[in-house]
Deep mutational scan, measured.
Amino acid sequence: VKVYLPNKQRTVVTVRDGMSVYDSLDKALKVRGLNQDCCVVYRLIKGRKTVTAWDTAIAPLDGEELIVE
């Protein structure tokens, strides 16, 4: 899953069964001094942002793009 992060940064996270968006992005956010409490995650669908819950399973999102703001 390709993830666009604040400050024009981006990362790619590996999809693993049983993991949530929260778990999958935890390290990427912490390395950048961010956490899930201060950010909102969106799914990018056909160029439009849709709010996605942090506890959403990451497996069904394989191949999609997320935006964290």
Rank of each mutant, 00 (worst) to 15 (best):
V1E: 02
K2Q: 07
K2S: 09
K2M: 08
V3S: 02
V3Q: 00
V3L: 09
V3G: 00
V3I: 07
V3M: 02
Y4V: 14
Y4T: 11
Y4D: 04
Y4W: 12
Y4A: 08
Y4N: 15
L5Q: 01
L5D: 00
L5K: 00
L5F: 15
P6L: 02
P6S: 08
P6W: 00
N7A: 05
N7G: 14
N7F: 05
N7T: 03
N7E: 09
N7Y: 09
N7R: 05
N7W: 05
N7P: 02
N7K: 07
N7D: 14
K8V: 03
K8D: 10
K8E: 13
K8M: 11
K8R: 13
K8I: 03
K8G: 15
K8P: 00
K8A: 12
Q9N: 07
Q9L: 05
Q9C: 05
Q9R: 09
Q9V: 13
Q9P: 01
R10D: 07
R10V: 15
R10E: 15
R10Y: 14
R10G: 10
T11I: 12
T11W: 03
T11E: 11
T11M: 13
T11Q: 11
T11L: 14
T11S: 04
T11P: 00
V12L: 09
V12S: 07
V12G: 00
V12A: 05
V12R: 11
V13A: 03
V13W: 02
V13Q: 05
V13D: 03
V13I: 14
T14I: 12
T14M: 11
T14G: 07
T14E: 10
T14D: 09
T14F: 13
T14K: 13
V15P: 08
V15M: 08
V15A: 13
V15D: 07
R16I: 12
R16L: 12
R16P: 10
R16Y: 13
R16G: 11
D17N: 14
D17K: 14
D17Q: 13
D17P: 15
G18N: 08
G18H: 08
G18M: 01
G18I: 01
M19I: 06
M19P: 02
M19E: 13
M19R: 08
M19D: 11
M19H: 05
M19S: 11
M19W: 12
S20R: 06
S20K: 06
S20Y: 04
S20P: 03
V21P: 00
V21M: 09
V21A: 08
V21I: 04
V21E: 04
V21W: 04
V21T: 00
Y22E: 10
Y22T: 06
Y22M: 10
Y22N: 06
Y22V: 07
Y22G: 15
D23L: 05
D23T: 11
D23E: 15
D23M: 07
S24M: 12
S24N: 05
S24I: 14
S24L: 12
S24G: 15
S24P: 01
S24E: 03
S24D: 01
S24V: 14
L25T: 00
L25W: 00
L25P: 06
L25G: 03
L25S: 01
L25M: 04
L25F: 01
D26V: 12
D26H: 11
D26T: 07
D26N: 06
D26P: 00
D26S: 11
D26W: 11
D26M: 10
K27Q: 06
A28S: 08
A28M: 13
A28D: 06
A28C: 08
A28F: 10
A28E: 09
A28V: 15
A28I: 08
L29C: 00
L29M: 15
L29R: 00
L29I: 01
L29V: 02
L29G: 01
L29W: 04
K30C: 04
K30D: 03
K30Q: 08
K30F: 04
K30E: 07
K30T: 10
K30M: 07
V31I: 12
V31K: 12
V31N: 12
V31M: 12
R32V: 14
R32Y: 13
R32I: 15
R32F: 13
R32L: 14
R32P: 04
G33A: 04
G33S: 05
G33Y: 01
G33F: 01
G33W: 00
G33D: 06
G33Q: 04
G33T: 04
G33E: 08
L34P: 02
L34M: 10
L34V: 00
L34N: 01
L34A: 00
N35H: 06
N35L: 07
N35T: 14
N35R: 11
N35K: 12
N35W: 01
Q36W: 10
Q36M: 09
Q36T: 10
Q36F: 10
Q36L: 07
Q36V: 13
Q36I: 12
Q36G: 06
Q36H: 09
Q36P: 13
D37E: 10
D37W: 02
D37S: 09
D37V: 03
D37C: 08
D37T: 06
D37N: 09
D37Q: 15
C38K: 15
C38Y: 11
C38W: 09
C38T: 13
C38P: 03
C39M: 05
C39Q: 00
C39W: 02
C39Y: 05
C39S: 04
V40E: 08
V40P: 01
V40F: 02
V40W: 02
V40M: 12
V40I: 11
V41Y: 01
V41D: 02
V41A: 07
V41M: 03
V41L: 10
V41S: 05
V41W: 04
Y42D: 01
Y42N: 10
R43A: 03
R43T: 08
R43N: 04
R43P: 02
R43L: 00
R43I: 00
L44F: 09
L44G: 03
L44M: 15
L44D: 04
L44H: 10
L44E: 07
L44Y: 13
I45Q: 12
I45C: 05
I45H: 13
K46A: 14
K46C: 10
K46P: 01
K46R: 13
K46I: 04
K46Y: 06
K46L: 05
K46E: 15
G47I: 02
G47S: 03
G47M: 00
G47F: 00
G47D: 03
G47N: 03
G47T: 04
G47H: 01
R48H: 13
R48P: 05
R48Q: 11
R48A: 10
R48E: 14
R48I: 15
K49N: 00
K49C: 03
K49L: 07
K49W: 08
T50L: 04
V51K: 13
V51C: 06
V51Q: 13
V51G: 03
T52F: 03
T52I: 15
T52V: 15
T52H: 04
T52Y: 09
A53S: 12
A53H: 11
A53R: 10
A53Y: 06
A53M: 04
A53N: 08
W54Q: 01
W54N: 01
W54L: 03
W54C: 07
W54S: 02
W54G: 00
W54V: 01
W54A: 05
W54T: 02
W54E: 00
D55F: 01
D55W: 06
D55K: 06
D55A: 06
D55I: 05
T56N: 07
T56D: 12
T56K: 10
T56H: 10
T56V: 08
T56F: 03
I58P: 01
I58A: 09
I58Q: 00
I58R: 01
I58Y: 15
I58W: 11
I58K: 02
I58H: 02
A59R: 13
A59F: 13
A59V: 10
A59W: 10
A59H: 13
A59P: 04
A59M: 15
A59I: 15
P60N: 10
P60M: 15
P60Q: 15
P60T: 14
P60E: 14
P60W: 09
P60L: 14
P60I: 00
P60H: 12
L61G: 09
L61R: 11
L61P: 04
L61E: 08
D62G: 12
D62E: 10
D62I: 13
D62F: 04
D62H: 12
D62C: 15
D62A: 14
D62L: 12
G63A: 10
G63Q: 05
G63P: 05
E64W: 09
E64F: 01
E64T: 13
E64N: 13
E64C: 04
E64L: 13
E64I: 04
E64V: 08
E64D: 05
E64A: 09
E65P: 08
E65W: 05
E65Q: 09
E65R: 06
E65V: 12
I67F: 15
I67V: 09
E69P: 03
E69T: 09
E69V: 05
E69Q: 04
